[in-house]
């Protein structure tokens, strides 16, 4: 199976999880990663600079119409929904909040599922609401791979638990094991 993209949804507890994730992936990791993290609508880009400094990959905030490229970890800007177009470029919108969130994980996951179909990996990490659940359902419907953070290892168990209750996940793992799995998948991907 050749995977074209990884989408990740993360909410409360996400700072630690994303720091770990972005600093653990090696420079040759070849699947683009797209992240929705719930942040205050007024937060600035300082956080992304910090992640970028600690990562061997390029961590950046999404620019609208930007083409998805390997070697990058993209993060949705605060106060915008992030969607993916058929030509694998990004769109931003200011539509109403979904699950009280903008960006919403569901909005990203659903549009990514429609574009990448079974060549998509969806990952739900720590968080204290149910955003991401509808999205991971859609990813599974299109034949994508669903990885959920083991709730017992998550800072906030609600979001991963909600996802696990809605689908049969392919993997339920700690962050460390998720990294191991992604490295294995990436190795086979080449």
């Amino acid at each position: 199976m050749y995977y074209e993209a990884i989408v990740i949804g993360v909410s409360s507890g996400g700072m630690k999880a994303l720091k770990f994730l972005s600093s653990s992936l090696p420079i040759h990791f070849s699947i683009p990663i797209i992240i929705v993290q719930h942040l205050s609508s007024k937060s600035d880009s300082h956080w992304i600079h910090l992640l970028n400094e600690k990562s061997q990959l390029n961590v950046k905030e999404v620019d609208e119409k930007e083409k998805i490229t390997k070697g990058y970890i993209y993060i949705a800007p605060p106060n915008y929904h992030l969607m993916i177009e058929k030509d694998q470029t990004f769109s931003l919108t200011i539509d109403e909040r979904v699950n009280f969130a903008r960006p919403s994980i569901d909005v990203l996951f659903e549009s990514a599922a429609e574009v990448f179909k079974n060549k998509l990996i969806g990952i739900v990490l720590t968080g204290s609401n149910s955003d991401g659940t509808n999205g991971i359902i859609r990813i599974k419907k299109y034949g994508g791979l669903a990885i959920i953070q083991d709730p017992t290892t998550a800072e906030s168990e609600y979001m991963p638990k909600s996802a696990i209750a809605a689908i049969i996940p392919d993997h339920v793992l700690s962050l460390e094991k998720i990294i191991e799995l992604l490295l294995k998948i990436d190795h086979k991907n080449k």
Partner: peptide, 8 residues
Amino acid sequence: YSQAHIRR
């Protein structure tokens, strides 16, 4: 218009 948006 952006297709992903219209579709949604």
